[in-house]
Amino acid sequence: MISSRERVLNYAILTIFAALALLPLIGVVASALTPAAESGPSFTWPHHLDVGNFGTAWRQGHFATYLTSSLLVAVSVVVLTAVLAILAGFSFAHFDYPGRSLLFYVTLIGLMVPPEAFVIPLYFNLRDTGLTDSYWSLILPQTAQSLAFGVFWMRNFFRSVPVSVIEAARLDGASDWRLLWRILVPTSRPALLTMAMLVFMWTWNEFLLPLVMITDESKRTAPLGLAFFQSEHTTQYSVLAAASIIVALPVVASYVFLQRHFISGMLSGAVKG
């Protein structure tokens, strides 16, 4: 039983760490709302708020195009990863065939290989097939990168489903396909949404692959576009801060919207190895 003194101390420590985490964010927001004439590299509280910096960043940075590209790539990666991870996770969790464990552990190698290790040979392979400078050069590699985590995540969830539920479905004559899509997938909603949220965030923030694969400005993703925008506006600190918020806002908004499911999935999605 936690005493009142321990509870107060816990809340005090959490409050301090929360303040330390929020302080840089408050600084970026304050800088984005600072008039251009008052902006500087150090933190200053604006005398009056200027939301025009967001409009300036949006127009000059072409972020409508960049955000559309990022959204197309991220949603495609999430959908492909979710479908493949569900199928593979179900196979590893409930089918018994030779080499199942070995194949599963080989799949997990994808969690250990950093993109820097394969991006150069990947570029030449995609160039030879004519896929560079296209959305497929971003969607396919990032789906492959995310699939190891997705398979691990969904396999663990499917293994956590009570055996009685599966046996009852099979006694009712449910096929494997129906068992998966009618029973297991609907019950996996928290875990599935958590996986989708994480994959969306990783894909949205990816910088190296777009930098190597994309030369067409109309296909630049938001982080890559922000890097080029920063190099062109190195001293316009308020506009740069506004552009950073524009790029980060979709991830923040999706997390806020799915927060309840995200926390639920994190608590229950990996309960069995």
Rank of each mutant, 00 (worst) to 15 (best):
D96T: 10
Y97L: 11
Y97S: 10
R100M: 03
S101T: 13
L103Q: 09
Y105S: 12
Y105D: 11
V106I: 14
V106T: 10
L108S: 10
L111M: 15
P115L: 00
E116R: 06
A117C: 04
A117R: 05
V119P: 13
I120W: 03
I120C: 02
L122W: 09
L122R: 10
Y123F: 15
Y123I: 11
F124K: 08
F124M: 05
N125C: 11
L126H: 12
L126P: 14
R127S: 03
D128T: 08
T129P: 00
G130F: 07
G130P: 12
G130A: 03
Y135Q: 05
Y135F: 12
S137I: 00
I139F: 13
L140E: 02
P141G: 13
Q142D: 05
T143F: 13
A144T: 08
Q145T: 05
S146M: 02
S146V: 04
A148L: 10
V151M: 07
V151Y: 06
F152N: 04
W153F: 03
W153V: 01
R155I: 03
R155G: 11
R155L: 04
R155M: 08
F157V: 08
F158D: 07
F158E: 05
R159Q: 07
V161Q: 13
V161W: 12
P162L: 13
V163E: 09
V163N: 11
S164T: 06
S164C: 00
S164P: 00
S164K: 06
S164Q: 10
I166V: 14
I166P: 09
E167D: 15
A168W: 04
A168G: 13
A169C: 11
A169S: 11
R170L: 10
L171W: 09
G173L: 04
A174F: 04
A174C: 15
A174E: 09
S175Q: 12
S175K: 13
S175T: 15
D176T: 05
R178W: 00
R178F: 00
L179D: 01
W181K: 02
W181S: 02
W181R: 01
W181E: 03
R182Y: 08
R182W: 09
R182I: 04
V185N: 03
V185W: 03
P186Y: 13
P186T: 11
T187V: 04
R189M: 07
R189N: 03
P190F: 10
A191I: 10
L192N: 00
L192W: 01
L192D: 00
L193H: 05
L193S: 08
T194W: 09
A196P: 03
A196V: 06
A196R: 05
M197P: 00
